[in-house]
């Protein structure tokens, strides 16, 4: 379980994360939602140790993460940012193999190859394993990066807007893969997501941020409510709940907002 206590991040006079305290329950899928500039990504990057907090503590199973060596942390927490460009010409399986680096430091064992195959299989990327990353679609590339993160075999996965720029089919594929990681493998998944409907239908837990602070946090039923979301986004919401899940409608704001 990851918990955050009195966390601050400031750039000069600008505070992007302000006095944030939050719990991210183990073996659950937690979505970080909120408007742009709410500090969601900053919070996630601090948990990933990609960004240094100005002040405050982050705990993994009760231990401060700053006392864990980087090489050990990579066996506990894996991070996926929006797929960046790099100069290497890699195939999908070569990329996934990088996920084994924390264990094998570059020399792959048969166990590593088994885990790599499993990760590729888990996301049904078998037909793409020898394709070059720059020759496949954006959605497939995002899946390949996710496979690398899965091959890292960490208890916790952090994902920064994994659905960015994806079509609805790939978005559903990624979200159901994350759901299965929690349900079948008991992993903890924390992601920043902008699509409220995905957050509402696939998460167990939601942390909603606004202006650098946690506004609401709790189970999906407690956060995906008309007044909470209206307050968060300053938009008019209509939330329909059915057997298939939630449908948050905010596309045509009708009526006045208080």
């Amino acid at each position: 379980m990851i918990s955050v206590n009195k966390l601050f991040k400031t750039y000069g006079k600008k505070t992007v994360v302000s006095d944030v305290g939050a719990h991210f329950p183990a073996h659950k899928l937690t979505s970080l939602i909120g408007p742009n500039g709410a500090g969601k990504t900053s919070l996630l990057m601090m948990i990933a140790r990609l960004l240094e907090p100005t002040h405050g503590d982050i705990f993994l199973n009760g231990n401060s993460i700053f006392n864990i060596r980087p090489a050990d942390y990579a066996k506990k927490v894996a991070t996926l940012r929006q797929a960046p460009g790099f100069n290497l010409r890699l195939t999908v399986s070569e990329l996934v193999a990088f996920g084994r680096f924390p264990y094998s430091r570059g020399v792959l064992t048969t166990e590593d190859y088994r885990v790599i195959d499993e990760a590729i299989e888990f996301l049904s990327l078998g037909t793409l394993r020898d394709a070059y990353l720059d020759e496949i679609s954006g959605g497939q590339r995002q899946m390949a990066f996710l496979a690398m993160t899965i091959a890292q075999q960490t208890d916790c996965l952090l994902l920064d807007e994994p659905l960015n720029n994806l079509d609805i089919k790939h978005a559903v594929q990624i979200m159901s893969a994350l759901r299965r990681l929690c349900d079948e493998q008991g992993r903890t998944v924390i992601l920043v997501v902008h699509d409220l409907n995905f957050a509402a239908n696939y998460s167990d837990h939601i942390v909603a941020m606004k202006e650098g602070r946690v506004h609401y946090s709790g189970s999906v039923e407690n956060v995906v409510k008309k007044n909470c979301l209206q307050d968060l986004y300053e938009l008019n919401f209509r939330i329909a709940r059915s057997e298939q899940g939630y449908l948050c409608n905010y596309f045509k704001p009708s009526g006045e907002l208080k």
Binding site: A48, A74, F86, F98, R105
Partner: peptide, 17 residues
């Protein structure tokens, strides 16, 4: 091997330990 990982970029490198 560390340099191979660093060619993926700073964030991936840190994430991979």
């Amino acid at each position: 091997p560390e340099l191979d990982v660093i060619s993926l970029g700073r964030e991936h490198a840190i994430s991979l330990g």
